[in-house]
Amino acid sequence: MVDVHSFRLQLAYGDVRGQDHLVASNFHDVYVGPESQYLVRDLQPNVPYTFRVCCRAEGASGWSAWSLPRVAVTLQPPFCESCPK
C-alpha cells in the first residue's frame, strides 16, 4: 500500500490523445496538492479537454507515471459567482 502525498492534474485543450507532437506543449497544471478531487473552473461548453493525473508517494522525490489521458466535454455554462442571476 502506498501513502499518496500529493496529486498533479493537467489539462490540454482539445483531444490530444495519440498526437504525441501536441502532448508535451499543450498540457498545463490546473491543480497540484493533497486533495483527490478538484473542480476545474472556466471550461467552455461543447469544447473537448484532455486530462491526465499523476501522484507522488510520501517520501518520494519524483512523480509517478501519468494516467491514461481522458477526454471530457461539458454542456454547462461556466460557473461564475459574481454573474447576475
Rank of each mutant, 00 (worst) to 15 (best):
V2E: 15
Q76R: 13
F51L: 06
C54V: 01
Q37Y: 02
N46C: 12
L9W: 05
A60G: 06
Q44T: 15
W63H: 04
V73L: 10
D15Y: 06
L43N: 09
C54I: 01
V23T: 15
F79E: 08
Y13P: 00
F79V: 04
R17D: 06
R17E: 11
V32G: 03
F51Y: 09
T50S: 13
R17V: 11
F51H: 03
K85W: 01
A72Q: 13
Q76W: 12
L75G: 11
F51P: 01
V47D: 12
L75V: 14
V71Y: 05
C55I: 06
E35R: 06
V32M: 14
A65H: 12
R52P: 02
G18Q: 09
P84R: 03
S64R: 02
G62Y: 01
D42P: 05
S82M: 00
V2K: 15
Y38W: 10
D3F: 12
G14S: 08
S25W: 05
D29H: 04
L22N: 04
H21P: 00
N46T: 09
R8I: 07
A65M: 12
C54M: 03
D15L: 03
R70N: 04
A65N: 14
M1D: 13
R41M: 04
L43E: 07
H28K: 05
N26M: 06
L9V: 13
P78H: 10
G14E: 07
M1W: 13
F79W: 11
N26V: 01
V47E: 14
L68N: 14
L43D: 06
G62K: 08
D3T: 13
C54T: 04
C80E: 07
Q10S: 09
H21L: 05
Y38E: 00
A24Q: 14
P78V: 14
P77G: 10
Y38H: 12
A60S: 14
S67W: 03
S82E: 00
R52C: 02
P69A: 12
R56V: 06
V30R: 02
C55L: 12
H21K: 10
D42H: 14
Y38T: 00
L75S: 15
P34R: 12
Q19S: 10
H5N: 15
A65E: 12
E81I: 02
Y13L: 12
H21C: 07
W63S: 03
R56H: 07
R70P: 00
V23E: 14
A65R: 13
V23C: 08
Y38L: 03
E35F: 09
S6E: 15
